[in-house]
Design a protein around this nucleic acid. Structure first.
Lengths: 213, 213
DNA sequence: CAATTTCATTGACCAATATCAAGAATAATT
DNA sequence: AATTATTCTTGATATTGGTCAATGAAATTG
């Protein structure tokens, strides 16, 4: 069970004894699709490592709309700052698929593991990865308009489009399905993409990139 | 000169020898108001610690408008991720006042200092502080509307308003001066604030908070 | 395969905020 | 104090994207 963690950078250098101890102070929980892992404002006593499934992190604006911030994929530590800073979750998290998570007693983890230079260096890496991610959220959502966000998404995730519902993509891009639909039509009219059934073909990648680069 | 650093958490536990070595691998540079410390996309060979002055960090959108992300105040490490991840600056930085910065050779710093558990723990703190900051940028700019941003600003920085030009405040809140002016008028009409010459008096803090809490 | 449900598109309209231009107030300079 | 420059406010208009409602197209179910 815990072997999977060996593949995860935070735990890679741990010997058997340490991993066993980690197992002692943690447990694995399964979640169904749609389950809320935590709500914005919740207090955190545990550190969470996502083992399986996709986790969506979002805030809710005044009108009750979701503003989607991240998607976490296995294996990832979720919201370590909340533990480090003894703060409350700044956003909510919901499982987008069935999933599993390792729930670690943070107090013990900090005491027994975090002083280890290897672990703390890995922690630094994990935090800086998160900062990069947040910078990207900001760059995408604060600096770019809807058309640019769509163009970027097509260029970076063109292949995924066939698997995802349009309404899902729209939500991830923080826009309505109507807006997405109109923008796709526009890009299609401009001859930058071709909308085939269930698929979007990029005709002019450079043209798309001019919207966001 | 370097003594000032003793007050900064990242360097607090360093002994004289270490501080001296730090001085060896770094130098202090003065900047005039309006100077660009780095541009978005620049590569970073040094780690920067802001010693004096206010540094504004921003991106530029397609229309050429600034989108202001942070203000850094002394003493703060600037954009450590850029060093840690060997990436390019994700935003530009400009001195809003005259200032000074400690420019540290990062390669040497990483080699000689970062393995030290105390330093790396402090680094973790610094990174997590930055994440909190970014979370706040997102919470403020992506999920709140203009009125909420203004209400929040008044509640949190009421005193500073007298020192700042309205157009400056508007820029920091990522809105136009016209919008700010209209919102202040609205809040004033609602009896939540009173606009005196050069000053804004909060009449009903709870009323203001309802806009953003 | 017909019926039903879900999802995507389209059009008409609305709300929030930006833009542009003019005027009013304030501050700085002579 | 008068003049000039700067900043602030106000109104008119434009733009972007959201909302609501209707229709069309796919997918699912019986």
């Amino acid at each position: 069970m815990i072997k999977k963690l060996k593949n995860f950078y935070l735990f890679r250098h741990m010997d058997e004894a340490k991993l066993a101890r980690l197992e002692d102070i943690s447990n694995i929980v399964e979640y169904k699709k749609g389950t809320i892992l935590f709500f914005e404002g919740d207090e955190a006593k545990n550190m969470i490592v996502l083992l399986d499934g996709i986790l969506q992190v979002y805030k809710t604006d005044q009108k009750g709309n979701k503003v989607i911030l991240h998607h976490f994929f296995p294996v990832d530590v979720i919201a370590e700052i909340v533990n480090l800073e003894h703060m409350r979750y700044p956003a909510s998290a919901e499982f987008e698929t069935d999933g599993r998570a390792l729930i670690i007693n943070y107090e013990l983890f900090e005491k027994e593991f975090l002083k280890d230079p290897e672990v703390s260096f890995a922690f630094i890496k994990s935090l800086s990865k998160k900062i990069k991610y947040l910078e990207n959220v900001i760059a995408t959502n604060m600096v770019m308009n809807s058309t640019a966000r769509v163009a970027k998404f097509i260029c970076e995730h063109g292949h995924e489009i066939s698997d995802l519902k349009k309404s899902h993509i729209a939500a991830d891009l923080n826009m309505t399905p109507e807006t997405l639909s109109r923008i796709l039509k526009k890009l299609s009219t401009l001859g930058l993409i071709e909308k085939k059934k269930d698929e979007i073909i990029i005709l002019d990648k450079e043209g798309l990139e001019t919207f966001y680069l």
